[in-house]
Amino acid sequence: MLDAVNARTLPGGEAPDSTVRDELPATLDAFLAGVGARAFRFAETGLRQREDALDAVQDAMMKMLAYEDRPASEWTPLFWSILRRRIIDVQRRRRFRLTWLSPAPRHEDETPVEWSDDGPDPSRTHDGREGYARLAEALGELPARQREAFSLRVLEELDVATTARAMGCSEGSVKTHLSRAREALQRKLEDWR
C-alpha cells in the first residue's frame, strides 16, 4: 500500500518518521494517480454509494488542477481537505433531498421504510472482503469527524499535523477524534474475531 508517489513531510521539510514515504511526486498527475484508489475508498466509506464516491473523487481531482503551481509538499493535505469538503457537500445535499423533497416512504402499517446497504462491492473478491465489509460498516456508524480522523491517520497514514490541516481543526482535536474512533471500533469489532 505504501508507494513512493505520495510522500509526506512536515512544514520544515523533514519526514515525521522513517515509515513515511520519502519522495515527493514529480507532477500533480503522478500525485493524483497515486492517491486515486485510496481517495475512492475514503469517499465510499463516507458516502456509502459507489457512484457518489466516484463523483466526489473526480470533483476533488478536478479542483486540485487549479493548485498545480503549489509546492508538492502541500498537495496531500490540500487534496484530502478538498475531498472531505466535497463529501460533506454531497451528504448535506442528500439530507436536504431526503427530508424536504420527498416524504419518507412508509409501510402499510405507517412505519418508516429503512433503507439497507446492499453489502460490499462485488469486485472485492479477495479473502478479506468480509473483514473489509465489517470495518466499512463500523466506520460508517462513527460520527463523521471520528471517521475522517481514523481514515486519514490510520488508513492513509498521514501525520497528525497534516491530518489537522486536512480536517481544518487542531492537532489535539485530531488526537481526540482518533482516540474515540479507535475505542468505538474496538467495541464494534471485538465480537467478530
Rank of each mutant, 00 (worst) to 15 (best):
N6F: 06
A7M: 07
R8T: 01
T9S: 01
T9A: 02
T9D: 00
P11A: 12
T19N: 15
R21A: 15
L24A: 14
P25Q: 06
L28P: 11
G34N: 02
V35F: 02
G36W: 08
R38L: 13
F42Y: 15
F42D: 02
A43C: 02
G46T: 03
Q49H: 12
Q49M: 09
L54G: 12
D55G: 09
V57C: 00
D59H: 15
M61A: 15
M61T: 12
M62H: 12
K63V: 04
M64Q: 03
A66Q: 08
D69M: 11
R70N: 13
S73L: 07
E74N: 08
P77E: 01
R86P: 05
I87H: 06
I88A: 14
R92F: 10
T99Q: 13
T99K: 13
W100C: 09
S102L: 09
A104W: 06
H107M: 15
T111K: 02
D117Q: 11
G119N: 06
D121M: 06
D121C: 01
H126L: 10
D127I: 02
G128V: 00
R134Y: 02
A136T: 06
E137I: 04
R147A: 10
F150V: 04
S151M: 10
R153P: 08
R153S: 15
L158A: 12
L158F: 06
V160T: 14
A161D: 14
T163A: 10
R165D: 00
E171R: 07
G172D: 12
G172V: 06
V174W: 10
T176M: 04
H177S: 12
S179P: 04
E183D: 14
A184H: 01
L185Q: 02
Q186T: 11
L189I: 00
E190P: 01
E190K: 09
W192L: 08
